[in-house]
Computed example of a mutant assay.
Amino acid sequence: MNMFVDMPGASGAHYRFRRVDVGALPAMAGNLIVVQPSDSDPILLVCMPAPSLSAARDLVMTALRLNPGALLYVRLNVARAVREAEHADIIAAATASGQDLARKGGAPMARETTAV
């Protein structure tokens, strides 16, 4: 999978995320996604904003452990309003495309989360 992935929002905007290793999660604010690569579009498993991405490490490690082959991507942004608006736009697009936004089969799926 590429070093970057563009996630569509319901608004029509696309948000570029950069692939990172879970050990390299910065202590900066931003949004993160965990996706499962597929032949077409990546499958969104986790999508969340965080005032400190490193604080989400445990949740990300669980998602990666439960979903072999899944990848972590981040988008750094400082303003809380921007993080939350982008998160809501991505979740709305995932919901509209029919992705299951609840836990399914024990694997963390894309869901609205509270900031950590």
Rank of each mutant, 00 (worst) to 15 (best):
D100I: 14
A94T: 03
T62A: 13
M48P: 02
G9W: 03
V116Q: 07
A96R: 08
M61Y: 02
V60T: 10
A70M: 03
H87P: 01
D89Y: 04
D41I: 08
A107D: 07
M1V: 15
V35Q: 04
A70I: 03
S54W: 02
S38M: 09
A13M: 08
I90C: 02
H87A: 11
A79M: 05
N77W: 03
P8W: 03
R16P: 09
L45Y: 05
L53H: 04
C47F: 08
R103F: 10
D100Q: 11
G12K: 06
P42Y: 02
D6H: 12
A55T: 09
G105D: 07
L59V: 10
V116C: 07
G30C: 06
G69R: 11
A27Y: 05
I43H: 09
L71S: 02
A92N: 03
A24T: 14
L71H: 07
T113F: 07
I91F: 01
L44T: 01
M3A: 15
P42R: 07
L66W: 05
D39H: 12
R75M: 04
S52G: 11
L76G: 09
A13W: 06
A63V: 07
G23C: 01
S40T: 15
V60Y: 06
V22D: 15
P68N: 04
R16Q: 14
A10S: 05
V20G: 00
L44M: 03
A96K: 02
F17Q: 06
T113C: 05
I33T: 12
G69Q: 11
R103L: 15
H87M: 07
P68M: 06
A110T: 00
D39T: 10
I91N: 00
T113Y: 13
S11P: 07
A24N: 15
Q99W: 03
G105T: 00
A56K: 14
A29W: 06
A13K: 14
D89E: 11
G98F: 01
V78T: 13
L72F: 05
R16V: 08
G23M: 02
R16E: 10
S97D: 07
A96P: 01
V5P: 02
A85D: 12
M1E: 15
E84V: 05
